[in-house]
Amino acid sequence: MLTSTSALILLVITLPIVIWAALSDLKRMKIPNKAVLALAAVWPLIGWYLVPFDAWLWGFALMAIVLVIGYLAYVTGTFGAGDAKYAAAMAGIFTGADYGLVMLLVAGCLIGALVTHRIMRAIPAIRRLTPDWESWTQRRYFPLGFALSGILVFYLLAQIWPQV
Score class of each variant (00 low, 15 high):
113 A>S: 08
102 V>I: 08
140 R>L: 09
130 T>E: 09
129 L>V: 14
135 S>I: 02
106 V>Q: 00
145 G>P: 02
95 T>Y: 04
142 F>I: 03
94 F>I: 10
128 R>N: 07
98 D>W: 14
111 I>K: 04
145 G>M: 02
115 V>Q: 03
93 I>D: 01
118 R>G: 10
109 C>G: 03
102 V>D: 02
91 A>K: 04
125 A>W: 12
147 A>N: 00
140 R>E: 10
92 G>E: 02
138 Q>T: 14
138 Q>V: 12
94 F>Q: 04
147 A>L: 05
104 L>F: 11
97 A>F: 06
138 Q>W: 12
95 T>K: 09
126 I>A: 05
126 I>P: 13
91 A>V: 05
116 T>S: 09
109 C>A: 09
121 R>N: 10
126 I>Y: 11
126 I>N: 04
108 G>Q: 01
86 Y>E: 02
130 T>K: 13
133 W>S: 04
99 Y>C: 13
90 M>H: 06
124 P>Y: 14
115 V>N: 02
107 A>V: 10
140 R>S: 12
124 P>Q: 14
109 C>M: 06
109 C>P: 01
106 V>F: 06
99 Y>H: 06
131 P>C: 10
108 G>F: 00
132 D>L: 08
118 R>Q: 09
113 A>Y: 03
141 Y>I: 14
113 A>T: 03
111 I>H: 02
137 T>K: 14
126 I>T: 11
86 Y>A: 03
111 I>A: 07
85 K>Q: 12
98 D>M: 11
131 P>R: 03
139 R>H: 11
120 M>D: 10
146 F>M: 05
130 T>R: 12
98 D>Q: 15
119 I>W: 00
86 Y>T: 03
132 D>M: 11
142 F>K: 02
117 H>Q: 07
94 F>K: 07
129 L>Y: 13
145 G>E: 01
147 A>V: 03
89 A>D: 01
107 A>W: 06
131 P>D: 08
100 G>N: 14
124 P>F: 11
87 A>M: 06
108 G>Y: 00
144 L>S: 07
141 Y>Q: 10
130 T>D: 07
107 A>F: 09
93 I>M: 07
115 V>A: 05
117 H>E: 08
138 Q>D: 13
142 F>Q: 02
128 R>S: 13
98 D>G: 15
89 A>N: 05
141 Y>N: 13
112 G>K: 01
137 T>C: 15
119 I>M: 07
94 F>T: 02
145 G>I: 01
